[in-house]
Design a protein around this nucleic acid. Structure first.
Lengths: 227, 227
DNA sequence: TGTACATCAGTGAACGCGCGTTCACTGATGTAC
DNA sequence: TGTACATCAGTGAACGCGCGTTCACTGATGTAC
């Protein structure tokens, strides 16, 4: 009988991380496995939906035994909700950054942020747009909540624009909603195109900027057309 | 041993349809079962995704044995694609009707068509918005194709508007795309609200009309701002 | 019109498989003294 | 500092279940003559 490797040697990630195992505390290793679960799940979701992914597949990809999954998440739904938070992080940060020092060219800058965020983590955005109306209610709810917050912040940003100071909250929200829907369409377009085909991506960016411009122009005309 | 019911008596739909069995040809009965499969699948998809639905569940709901499923569809993917066609039918008809005799109030009329279509078959629209970016590639492709066609027709309609005769195809498509994205958002809103709460639905309709109005006003401003 | 044969929608047994979850466990890490 | 005990991330066997698909079949309907 050959000696079995200890649970320590076998744990999540396997060979790659063996070198620095000695420096990690138990809590750090647990967090490490949690991150592996999240990352590997996102990779598996590249072209499939969460509902079609099994707990065993996820555990296998993360290099742990199925039962160890429960040390980190109550269920696949629970993991999905955690994944929503992770997936929104880069976009949230980019937006927070933009709010700190405002953009020189609001439209071009906004589209630029979106494109960078999507290209920076395509798997995350693919996951989000797939699960937004997808079959796992808890996940869809979590995404809806993030989008609601995003729209609210955009509403506040709009409210600060000098020309819009007289607008009611209702109208501001209506326009913010329209802009968010336009951006969701842009994200879907970006994910559908081959990033290597620069011309195609450029066409999407150009369209996105023109669409936002139509909305902004519409806002101007709206003001002069209503009391 | 009790006498087994004949396959005829047992077939899809069961008791409900026994009365007129004698009048149906074999082909009619097959078509009947096919329709039952489509209808029952749509019902099962009310709050789940296609990827999480099993062939056996569908067969059970339609009142046939799993193996008989293959008499009608090659696979669940195949059924999904057929379901896309069925689900778009009512909207396509409403639009064709509107194109025959143009609307008095284009914006209000368009929103009205959308609301009626959605309320007329909520299950179908729920299915479409869930599977649009969902996990079954063949189905997502079929929906994308229908939306592409819808957008193309809208582009043609826009091209016929006197004030837009000088516009390039590119700009027309850009605006059509923006409008379609706005409408997709409206559909999602309609599906999320309780239809019994008339005030909530009315708020969505009002928002939808204002959003389309912003776009139309933006188009006007766009014309006067570019050569 | 009757008869013999072909068609084919639906049946039901059987298969091997991956699933989620339970359970008692191991052994390295962490802590109290 | 050493020792005894507690903690707990990960293990692996086992379970019952529903799955997609195969296969040979049945018997009513349809067709050729």
């Amino acid at each position: 009988v050959t000696r079995q490797r200890s649970s320590h040697e076998r744990r999540a990630g396997g060979e790659r991380r063996t070198s620095n195992d000695a420096h990690e505390s138990r809590a750090e290793r647990k967090e490490h496995t949690r991150q592996t679960l999240l990352t590997e799940t996102l990779a598996l979701l590249e072209d499939r939906s969460l509902a079609s992914l099994s707990l065993r597949e996820v555990a296998r990809a993360a290099g742990i035994v199925p039962t160890a999954f429960y040390r980190h998440f109550d269920s696949m739904d629970d993991l999905g909700v955690a994944l929503v938070d992770v997936s929104f992080q880069s976009l949230r940060q980019a937006i927070r950054q933009a709010r700190r020092d405002p953009l020189d060219h609001p439209i071009r800058g906004t589209v630029d942020i979106l494109v960078r965020a999507v290209r920076g983590d395509e798997a995350a955005f693919r996951f989000l747009s797939r699960e937004r109306n997808g079959g796992v209610p808890a996940v869809a709810r979590a995404i809806a909540e993030e989008l609601r917050q995003f729209r609210n912040e955009l509403t506040i940003d709009l409210a600060r624009i000098p020309q819009l100071l007289t607008w009611g909250a209702d109208d501001l929200e209506m326009v913010a909603d329209l802009m968010v829907n336009a951006m969701l369409g842009i994200v879907a377009d970006l994910l559908a195109v081959d990033p290597a085909r620069a011309a195609d991506q450029q066409a999407i960016i150009a369209k996105a900027e023109r669409q936002l411009r139509v909305i902004v122009l519409g806002m101007g005309a709206w003001m002069s057309s209503s009391p």
